[in-house]
Design a protein around this nucleic acid. Structure first.
Lengths: 214, 214
DNA sequence: ACCTGAACACCGTTCAAGT
DNA sequence: ACCTGAACACCGTTCAAGT
């Protein structure tokens, strides 16, 4: 990790001649904020630190974001983007069936465990964040849609009961989100192995819960 | 609400004559911190504000807690205490059967919705909090134990499958915790009704998931 | 023992000013 | 348009000093 993401901070790429420091400061700010959150958590994110790391005044950011929370919301949006991609990839690489559905569940927990601080930013204070970044809701519902699609396909194929797909998806989401939160918040002793074991067991029980009645 | 809790702040109850301001400052600090968290959230909690509300220096607290996080941990511990009581009450008032189990689930969500900030403090950064308050883990496992007991009794009565009770309890906990988090973080549009509906549906699906195989 | 008050090293945000 | 620098109103925490 740490290699992807920001091209902006390496080559200034100034639009015109004699500019200040950056060409795409907005993007660079999001990248730097993400980097900080990944290593130090949201509570370690400081506007002054972000500015300093980018060689820019600590108030330069107010040209691109209304306040700190708006910057955090942008990071959250970026998170939902890669999150959705991870889920869809897992689903499709396993052939979109029952196996794909299970792979999605594994990919879900994997993302949360690999980037706990990012995951927390994405789901914590969601409503307030959406107010600061209306497009965030699109990315978030996009991720939810991946789960929804899988369940609808499961209904067509007959391994998912014919309940309202939305509430069905919310139920499955609750289980996975719950496991993810318990694991990254350290509620399970020996979180590494216990979390994986819980996830395997949950996958089995979820299949039983969402299966057709008889 | 707002009537229970603190007796300490009303009658100073000084141990000896000519004292400063309080008799049980430690307890008063926890009560005041809880009050602030309930109304303004953890991010609205400020040591200076707590001190001011109690008519005490803002550094007086350091005689009773190592730092701010330790105060928050004490509030979390108090939360697990009343949380456990709420769960056990629901369980017992419904006659400790299948109905009691379902009542526990409702009581769970009810607590989270009624005190979202408190719930978040209890479950967020759990490991770090435990380091600041070792007894916190006892109260937390006490709440978990209530769920565990119900499931074991369900196994004896035959409406719960004979899997490892701990992992069974963790699964049920994940669902309920997941729902609670999604609701209080505003991830469901129209959280009030949608949350209750999801909880009802989840109760039904959980019963199916934890039922014996045939 | 218990509490205070000044001091320290931080914050996010505003705003007049520069280019 | 984009960025700066000083200023403002906050933080948690430390520590010598008081009773």
């Amino acid at each position: 990790m740490g290699s992807m993401a920001g091209s902006a901070s390496k080559r200034p790429r100034r639009k015109r001649a004699g500019q200040y420091h950056h060409g795409d400061l907005r993007h660079a700010l999001i990248d730097q904020a993400l980097r900080t959150i990944l290593t130090a958590g949201v509570e370690g994110l400081t506007l002054r630190g972000v500015g300093e790391a980018l060689g820019v005044s600590r108030t330069a950011l107010y040209r691109h974001f209304s306040d700190k929370q708006a910057l955090v919301a942008a990071v959250a949006r970026e998170g939902f983007r890669t999150f959705r991609r991870a889920l869809v990839d897992a689903w499709e690489q396993q052939g979109r069936g029952r196996a794909g559905f299970e792979a999605m569940g594994e990919a879900y927990l994997q993302f949360a465990v690999a980037h706990p601080s990012h995951y927390r930013v994405m789901f914590g204070r969601f409503m307030e964040s959406c107010a600061r970044d209306p497009e965030l809701i699109n990315e978030a519902t996009g991720a939810f849609q991946a789960l929804l699609d899988a369940l609808v396909e499961g209904q067509r194929e007959g391994w998912v009961r014919q309940d309202d797909p939305v509430i069905l998806a919310r139920f499955v989401w609750s289980v996975t989100h719950g496991i993810a939160m318990l694991v990254i918040d350290g509620q399970l002793r020996d979180s590494d192995e216990a979390g994986a074991a819980l996830n395997r067991y949950a996958a089995e029980r979820i299949q039983a819960a969402i299966a057709p009645s008889l």
